[in-house]
Design a protein around this nucleic acid. Structure first.
Length: 492
DNA sequence: AATGCGTGTCATAAG
DNA sequence: AGCTTATGACACGCA
C-alpha cells in the first residue's frame, strides 16, 4: 500500500446553504491541493476539524439522532477528530482527552453565554428562592419582579394579584340585617345575639374559657345612660362591611387593625405614653378603670360626656354609619379602654405596659388577648395568601420562560441537524473525491470500508486504514507508514 | 342549588 | 415560657 499521491486534489466543503452557518463561523472550506501529501490549512478558511468539533460538541450536547443515511456514517467522521499530536505522531496510548475545545465549557456556561436573557435573573444571581419570597417590600426587588412577570401572567392570577394589592382590606364578611340605630331594647337584645354569628367566623371553635364571648353575651350593649341612641349591636354587619369596603378602599395588611376611617380609635401614632397622660378620673364613671379612654375622650372630644368618650373611641353611629366587626363590637361591649389598633399593633412590651395601666377583668383581658391573637393571625393569613399567589405567579412565569427556552433550543437543534446533514453529504463527496484520485493515481481501489480520513492537530489529513481500528492504536510504526498526509495543501 | 372565591379564624408547628 | 409568624384546614358570605 502506498500512500503516495501526486497531483492536486481540489476539495471543497462549503457552508453555503447551511441552515445555521453562523454557528460554524463561516465557510467550511477544504479546497485541498494534494501535493506531496502535505496539508497546510489556509487561515482564512475554516478548518474541517473546527467545524467538526463544534458539530460534535453540539451533537453531543443535544443528543442528536440524525438519520444515518450516509454510507460513511459515524466512524469516518469521528476519525476526523484531532489525533492529539502530543509527542509528534508517536501516539501510542489512548487519548480520551481529545475533546473539542467547544466542549470544554460547562454546558451551563455555554447556555449562559448563549441565552443570557433566557436564564431567569434569580437563577443567575441567586439560587435561593427565599430571597424572592420574602416579605414584599414596596418598590423593592419583589415588586419589580412582580411587575416584570406580569406579562406571562395568566389573567385569573393577575386579577387575583391585583385584587390582593388593591383590595387587601376588603372584608367579605357580611351579615343579614338592617341598620337600626334607634333600636328598642328588644331589638337590641336580638342584635346582641348576633354577636356570635358574624360571617367568616368559625363560631364556637374558640375555647369558651379562652374567649370572653360568653361574657360578651352576658353584658348588655353599651348604651348611654339616657337611653337614647346607643351603639347597640343592631347594625347590619353586611351593610357595615359593604360600606366599609366602598368607603375605605385598600389598606395595607399591616394596617389591618389600624383605625378604620370613621372610627376614632387612637392610633399608635397619636398615643401618648401612659405616664404622660393626664388622667383625671371622672366620678360618674361606673367603671373607674378607663383612664385612657377618658383621656382619649378629653383629647378627641374635649369636654364631652361619657357618651362623647365612647363616641370618640368607637364609631359615631349617626354621622357616618361606621361598621364594626365582631371584635370591635365586643371591645365596645366590654368597654375595652383602648383601641384595637393598639391591641394588635403595639409591640409586646408596649402592649403589656398598656395592660398594666388599666385594671381589666378577666373577660376584658381574655378579649384583648384574643383580639391581639386574631388580629396578628389575620395579617399573617393575608400575608401568607399573598405570598402563595406570588409563588404561583412566579412559577407560571418560570414555566413560560422554560417553554420559550425549549422552543428556542428545538429550533436551534433543527438547524444544527440540517447543517450536519449537509456537512455529512459534503464530507461524503470529499471521501469520494479523495478515494477516486487515489485510485486513479495509485491504481489502488481505496474504499471507505478500508480507509478513513483523519486529521491531526497540525491540520494534516491522513488516510488511515480502518484495520488499525482507532487512531489510538496507531503506533509509531503505523504512523511511519501512514504519516504522510494524503490531502495536500489547502488552496485558498 | 351548586360552585368558586375571598376572608377570618383556629390549630399547630417552628423560630 | 411566652410571643410571633407561617400555614393548612375549616366555615362563612357573596357573586
Amino acid at each position: 500500500m502506498c500512500s503516495a499521491i501526486n497531483g492536486v486534489l481540489p476539495l471543497r466543503i462549503s457552508c453555503e446553504g447551511l441552515a445555521n452557518p453562523g454557528r460554524l463561523h463561516g465557510e467550511v472550506s477544504m479546497s485541498t491541493n494534494v501535493t506531496g501529501f502535505r496539508a497546510h490549512r489556509s487561515p482564512q478558511h475554516l478548518d474541517m476539524d473546527s467545524a467538526w468539533q463544534e458539530l460534535m460538541a453540539i451533537t453531543e450536547l443535544q443528543e442528536f439522532e440524525v438519520p444515518n443515511e450516509n454510507p460513511f456514517e459515524a466512524i469516518p467522521y469521528l476519525s476526523m477528530e484531532p489525533m492529539v499530536s502530543q509527542g509528534g505522531f508517536g501516539m501510542s496510548q489512548p487519548q480520551p482527552e481529545s475533546i473539542p475545545a467547544t466542549c470544554d465549557a460547562h454546558p451551563a456556561a455555554v447556555y449562559e453565554n448563549a441565552y443570557p436573557e433566557m436564564m431567569p435573573p434569580y437563577q443567575r444571581l441567586n439560587p435561593h428562592m427565599d430571597m424572592h419570597y420574602s416579605r414584599p417590600v414596596p418598590g423593592g426587588h419583589g415588586s419589580s419582579r412582580m411587575l416584570a412577570n406580569t406579562q406571562a401572567l395568566h389573567p385569573p392570577l393577575m386579577s387575583l394579584l391585583e385584587h390582593m394589592n388593591m383590595t387587601t382590606r376588603s372584608h367579605g364578611i357580611a351579615k343579614d340585617g338592617v341598620i337600626n340605630l334607634h333600636c328598642t331594647g328588644q331589638i337590641k337584645q336580638a342584635c346582641t345575639d348576633d354577636l356570635e354569628s358574624d360571617s367568616g367566623l368559625s363560631l364556637g371553635s374558640s375555647p369558651p374559657l379562652a374567649s370572653p364571648e360568653n361574657a360578651v353575651h352576658g353584658v348588655s350593649s353599651y348604651l348611654p345612660a339616657d337611653g337614647t341612641m346607643g351603639y347597640a349591636e343592631s347594625e347590619s354587619i353586611g351593610e357595615q362591611y359593604r360600606m366599609r369596603q366602598s368607603l375605605f378602599g385598600s389598606v395595607d395588611y399591616q394596617q389591618s387593625y389600624s383605625s378604620y376611617p370613621g372610627t376614632s380609635f387612637p392610633t399608635t401614632a397619636n398615643m401618648q405614653p401612659i405616664n404622660q397622660q393626664t388622667y383625671q378620673p371622672i366620678a360618674s364613671l361606673k367603671q373607674p378603670v378607663l383612664p385612657t379612654a377618658m383621656h382619649d375622650l378629653q383629647l378627641n372630644s374635649s369636654g364631652l360626656t361619657r357618651l362623647g368618650a365612647y363616641q370618640s373611641m368607637y364609631p359615631k353611629p349617626s354621622s357616618v354609619p361606621v361598621p364594626l366587626n365582631r371584635d370591635e363590637r365586643r371591645a365596645r361591649t366590654l368597654k375595652i379602654p383602648f383601641s384595637l389598633d393598639k391591641i394588635v399593633n403595639l409591640p409586646v412590651d408596649d402592649f403589656n405596659e398598656l395592660l398594666t395601666q388599666f385594671t381589666l377583668n378577666d373577660a376584658q383581658l381574655a378579649l384583648v388577648r384574643d383580639i391581639r391573637r386574631r388580629g396578628k393571625n389575620k395579617v399573617a393569613a393575608q400575608n401568607c395568601r399573598k405570598r402563595k399567589l406570588e409563588n404561583i405567579v412566579h412559577l407560571e412565569n418560570e414555566l413560560g420562560q422554560l417553554r420559550a427556552q425549549r422552543e428556542h433550543l428545538t429550533r436551534e437543534r433543527l438547524g444544527f441537524q440540517q447543517n450536519l446533514a449537509i456537512i455529512k453529504c459534503r464530507l461524503s463527496d470529499l471521501y469520494t473525491q479523495v478515494f477516486s484520485q487515489l485510485r486513479d493515481e495509485e491504481g489502488h481501489p481505496y474504499s471507505v470500508d478500508e480507509y478513513s480520513l483523519q486529521q491531526t492537530n497540525d491540520g494534516n489529513i491522513y488516510l488511515v486504514p480502518r484495520n488499525t481500528a482507532l487512531e489510538s492504536e496507531l503506533t509509531d510504526v503505523c504512523f511511519e507508514k501512514w504519516k504522510s498526509p494524503i490531502v495536500g495543501q489547502l488552496n485558498p
